[in-house]
Computed example of a mutant assay.
Amino acid sequence: MDINTKGVWGIEPKFASCFRFTEGLAVAKRPGMKTTGYINKTGEMVISEKFKIALPFKNVLAYVKDKKRRGYINNLGEFVWKSK
């Protein structure tokens, strides 16, 4: 999570796992969840936890896999390219 130089949490530690921020979003999973989503820098889940696989954003896209499809999403969580 995020702790500033004064030891104050920027985002409360409420996630079971959270990766570093890339392009303003981070892959995160809440305790007890089997799927992941994306949070913003305030800790708000902005792309719902529906992915079995979710990779960090790179060049405005992120590779994900859900129950039915896999491919790349934009920062709104919309599939922009799907593979079979």
Rank of each mutant, 00 (worst) to 15 (best):
M1Q: 09
D2Y: 12
D2P: 01
D2S: 07
I3M: 10
I3G: 03
N4V: 01
N4F: 00
N4E: 05
T5L: 09
T5P: 00
T5W: 01
T5S: 14
G7T: 11
V8Q: 15
G10P: 00
E12W: 01
P13R: 14
P13D: 12
P13K: 15
K14Q: 13
F15W: 08
A16K: 10
A16L: 07
S17H: 04
S17K: 11
R20P: 02
R20D: 13
F21E: 07
F21H: 11
F21N: 07
T22K: 09
E23G: 02
G24A: 05
G24W: 02
L25W: 06
L25R: 11
L25Q: 05
A26K: 08
V27I: 14
A28V: 09
A28C: 12
A28K: 06
A28W: 12
P31Q: 10
P31R: 04
G32Q: 08
M33S: 14
M33N: 14
K34N: 13
K34E: 15
K34C: 02
K34Q: 13
T35A: 04
T35L: 14
T36Y: 06
T36P: 01
K41Q: 15
K41L: 05
G43M: 07
G43N: 07
E44P: 00
E44G: 00
M45G: 03
M45R: 05
I47S: 02
I47M: 04
S48H: 11
E49L: 03
E49H: 01
K50G: 15
F51K: 03
F51L: 01
K52M: 10
K52W: 12
K52V: 05
K52Q: 12
I53V: 14
I53E: 14
I53S: 05
I53T: 12
I53Q: 10
I53H: 06
A54P: 07
A54Q: 08
L55Y: 15
L55H: 14
F57W: 03
F57S: 01
K58W: 11
V60N: 12
V60A: 07
V60C: 03
L61R: 14
A62G: 08
Y63H: 13
Y63G: 09
V64W: 08
K65W: 00
D66P: 10
D66G: 07
K67C: 00
K67N: 11
K67A: 10
R69G: 02
R70T: 08
R70D: 11
G71Q: 12
G71F: 10
Y72A: 06
Y72R: 06
I73C: 11
I73N: 12
I73F: 13
N74G: 07
N74A: 06
N75W: 00
N75G: 00
L76Y: 09
G77L: 05
G77H: 03
E78W: 00
E78G: 00
F79A: 08
F79W: 13
V80H: 05
V80G: 04
V80T: 10
W81F: 13
K82Q: 15
K82G: 01
S83N: 01
K84L: 09
